[in-house]
Write a protein that binds this DNA or RNA. Structure first.
Lengths: 217, 217, 217, 217
DNA sequence: TATGAATGAGGTTTCATTCAT
DNA sequence: AATGAATGAAACCTCATTCAT
């Protein structure tokens, strides 16, 4: 793995401002000028630091995706947990992590929908990141299968698609679900307390049902 | 409901070309000139027909979302089907319909992620469309609960989020899942045969497990 | 040969304004905005017409070089002239033609000095144009050799280099030679009357000496 | 004459790198950043050393043109040579000198074509340099005329224009003449051996013919 | 209905130069 | 002497839209 790039306070500030704007308005719809103004930074500095608007986005992906899996791996290596508990911990981590970087998550959803070029840096970063996630859960499932807790013939990609798709959907459509659930617009705390909490519970339930021995019966 | 607008052959042609381009490159990334060129239509005519680029997009949503639920409602009113079968028919329809209008679906995923203004026409159209879908499944579930086939306390919004999120995710990330499954790029038939078919089966399984009496046990 | 492109009055006007500016300040040093302002044309029109600044330059070359050789060929086909007179007519034409399109000529000198990419459109256009000129004079020289008026072993490329180099040099360094000859700055008529006229006479003399039988003696 | 400025190794290095780039791409097309990078020097140092990009160019001219005529003067003062031999030595020197500083020569051709302001430092430097060259050859020609080797009424400026124009043309259009003569791109040795050598011979021949008594006959 | 021309705003990027250390 | 950061201006180009016919 490459050595993680180091960023100055100012650079990180620019990246965070960019995340906000990209999440809110979209990549193309956000101008570099807007980022500069909101970050209170000279326009030319952004190109000076990142090279181009596109490279700024790539830096954001690189930075956000780096080391995401490391702390997860630590959680999973906790010997005290049995496979079922590990699955629960995994889902807790996944949802919490997506929620805490909500805006970047939204950008990622948009981008993976647009990024069609398999050779693009972003496509590769996302593929790699997801592969890391998959390999972690795979180990747990194999262990659970050995212990006869989980059934055979589990398609991990598809199973991942279910919770990745669901969680991303819910976190990318806050205005929509706020409307449906009559949650005050922009009140993320309430959103989390009511909807995300419920989501967490139900997704766990579903995944456990899905893995359980009798699923096919 | 408003009376559905009538469109000429030419207008429909423009809309279809626009769907292709919007799906492939995104709304902002597609220029009106590109649409005009690909549709072999004079540039100025597009504004003449639709008023503006944004209104063209709105027309597309209006047209694509209109009458979607009607045929579904017919399926569901089939008295010969029991609630479980109805749920299966519903999911079949949902997946098939999303797959057959794959490109519009992709646009919709992108847009609902971007469209933040609750007063925007597109936001309202999507909210309304989803509400119709929900009301249809709600009836089935209530019926299933009466017949003690389904458990109590089912959150339909969340349940919908699960399959809407999953299906949209899978259909909006064709390049990604093609890569993961080693499906030839652009071979949609193979994609459907291998991945979407499996998805259909598993989603049904999951939803049925989720609705079943013992889910909470 | 390709069919010559047709240009509207307005397009020709833009091209002429561009020639003036490119000759005076250079290609890179001239901004499209300056051209637009001097031509009293909307900035975007220039890209609308020509595609880009570079393509504008290419159009200028294409237009200026087209049909240049045709009228020369007519002069040379005049049966009444003997080879020596044809050489003189050739040189008259060459100098007069370079002088009458003085500014374009200057651009061409600059560009051929810069244009290093053998695959560039402009490089190819100039190579082709010069080849046409050469083929015309070659015929005359061969004829003169048959008639024992000119010596054998004449390198046409090098001979061309002599008058092309000299004429271009003189016409591209008007300020310099005006200074040396104390000709009023910008008085092109005087420049032509005194310096170019003399150049014409001497170049003819030199070329004739160079071609003559005794040259090597 | 001003006392020649002294330059450090580092400054000379920068100037040489700048010559390469200016010759290859042009003055405006070369950025100070590129010079800094290629010279492996801090960007700000270039302004620190030379004041500005333009002054860097002026320094190059100053340095390159200084003392050029001195060694020529020494050659010409060789009492053993007769006027005809001196003309030959002059031309040898001129061509050799232009060839050995090929890149600066190319810059000079470009610049004298662009530099229109008679008050500019570069314009003045070039005028002065050329005047020195002229004064040297003038003496030889006057001597030759006294010895009845050369004809009367020789326009030295025009005669200079012929070989300056020709030599500069040939040396500034290497890609073009390489193409015409099928010389491998960038093979300067071959270029010199075949084309420049021939040019040397023919130019001498021409100038001698031009100066000879019978020229007007 | 249809079209080629036209417009003004705004996009990203690059540049030469200077500042602060 | 040397440097990395910073700056403001200006470059080219593209866009959605409208005008005139």
């Amino acid at each position: 793995m490459e050595h993680a790039k180091e960023y100055s306070e100012k650079q990180l500030h620019i990246m965070n401002v960019a995340i906000d704007l990209f999440a809110e308005k979209g990549f193309t719809e956000t101008s570099v000028r807007q980022i500069a103004e909101k970050a209170e930074v000279n326009l030319a500095m952004i190109n000076y630091y990142f090279g181009s608007k596109k490279e700024l986005l790539e830096s954001i992906f690189e930075y956000q995706l780096a080391n995401k899996t490391i702390s997860l791996e630590q959680i999973m290596s906790n010997a005290a947990l049995n496979p079922v508990q590990k699955i629960e911990a995994y889902l807790d981590y996944f949802i919490e992590s997506a929620f805490s970087s909500l805006k970047f998550n939204k950008i990622m959803v948009k981008r993976t929908t647009t990024e069609v070029d398999r050779e693009s840096k972003i496509f590769k970063l996302v593929v790699e990141s997801r592969a890391q996630y998959r390999s972690i859960i795979e180990k747990v499932i194999v262990q659970g299968q050995k212990e006869k807790l989980f059934r055979k013939n589990i398609d991990i990609v598809l199973m991942s698609a279910i919770f990745v798709g669901t969680v991303n959907h819910v976190l990318s459509n806050v205005p929509y679900y706020s409307t449906v659930y009559h949650i005050e617009q922009g009140n993320m705390k309430a959103y989390k307390e009511t909807f995300v909490k419920k989501l967490n519970k139900e997704i766990k339930l579903i995944i456990k049902l899905y893995l359980s021995i009798d699923a096919k019966a």
